[in-house]
Amino acid sequence: MTHLEQKSAADRSKSGVSERIPPSLVEIQARFRAMIVDRILMFEALKRAIEVNQQPAQALGAISDLAHKISGVAATLGYPHAGQLAAEIEQAIHDGNVAARSAHQTWNCIQPDLEALMDELESLLDE
């Protein structure tokens, strides 16, 4: 188990928790939540693409872009755990690119966190 995997496993118990946000951000939070289902579906499609070896490097890039969008706003909108998981995925993909790892090596590294992020996003829908 990598450090990333250990950390994510440890953090998983904190999932589904949102923090209070200023009233001025409530509308923006609602818009973020409205995008969650689409984002989970996109993650699922990209995950499948990597698993069947269909342009895995591009799929990883797209996962990174999506994670970047989530990590950029989730914490400020009261979802620090989702933000943290997304940031870790983004960072791991970036590190994989810098180290010239294969898409599948990087995928093995981020898969547990991506699953955790999708679970986390799903749990936010139940709030």
């Binding site: 200023p22 001025s24 951000l25 923006i28 818009r31 973020f32 995008m35 970047h68 969008k69 950029g72 706003v73 400020t76 909108l77």
Partner: peptide, 15 residues
Amino acid sequence: DDPVFLELLLEMLRS
């Protein structure tokens, strides 16, 4: 390129 981030930034700048 993220409209949600731009909204957030706009709101914070306004505040």
